[in-house]
Amino acid sequence: MDIKTIQYTPKDFKSDQEVRWCPGCGDHAVLNAIQRAMAELSIPKEKFAVISGIGCSSRFPYYMNTYGFHGIHGRAGAIASGVKVANPELCVWQITGDGDAMAIGGNHFIHEIRRNIDLNVILFNNEIYGLTKGQYSPTSKEGSKTKTSPFGTVEPPFKPGMLVLGAMGKFFARTIDNNIKVTVEVMKEAAKFRGTSVVEVLQNCVIYNDQVFAEISDKQHKLDRQLVVEHGKKMIFGTNNDKGIVQDGLGLKVVTIGQDGYTEDDILVHNAHDPNPYIHMMLVNMQLPEFPVVFGVIRAVQEEHTYDAKVEHQIASVQSKSVIKNMDDLMNSGDTWEVK
């Protein structure tokens, strides 16, 4: 198929299944954004495989008119790894949640990232267990009162981006369900990136954790509380576009352009391609009220080869040198003897 002739609309990616998420759930918006992103990618539809684990967001594959696999709790990463390594021609998307990827599937999550398999991992983070009806998750803020923490949790949460960096991740982006433009953009960037791309989507659960990201997404303040980064551009934000991030000793700080002697020249330029994760880590960790929350592609360090490609290369290289071409060759190689 000639890739240039492929013209899709988001509708081509919608399956005939009724979408059963709760009305008002952030998942609807992410589904639409991913369908839009896929339509714009010019990849033949049959090349997409969407793999999920268990949880509200993991129903995702059923709503996609692509190849899809709804797995078991926590194992989406392992299943997706198998699909991609078995057939690197496929464009494999892994749909997972904060319970699926950070708790029961934590091991698979860090290892797929470490291996750098060419997967697009979409992590729906609503900081709660939705499908089991409201227990705290590994990303719930300390003190969260939930059905299993009626007096508040006493455990600190994971920051998914920190796990990605800790596992030597090459790509991390963050978005929020109600920002369609950034969501579509980072999904496309994740798909184009060769390697494990993790996109954390802050996603509101209207039933069990409503308004958990309200401080960030609140219409009135969001321009002051969200920093959307872009590689090669200065990290400037704010209602008046006058706030920016500058280096402050070994850390970062927010300044207002034109105050305290800061000019636009002082504002840091975002370098997503920097292999050194130091600044990326600080961007991942920024939180209200001292800092805005960072969205967009925070880290995208392209390696020459992904795991799946290296497997192919190794096989090709061994095959080109080996005299064993089939099972007959193998079984008759080495020490054998004839009985007459």
């Binding site: 797995g71 392992a78 198998g82 078995a86």
Partner: peptide, 19 residues
């Protein structure tokens, strides 16, 4: 794989992919 579960789950993924 990183563990026994990933061992079988990657195999299930490969099977889904037609191997």
């Amino acid at each position: 794989a990183e563990d026994e579960i990933a061992g079988i789950c990657t195999a299930i993924g490969a099977s889904f992919a037609g191997r």
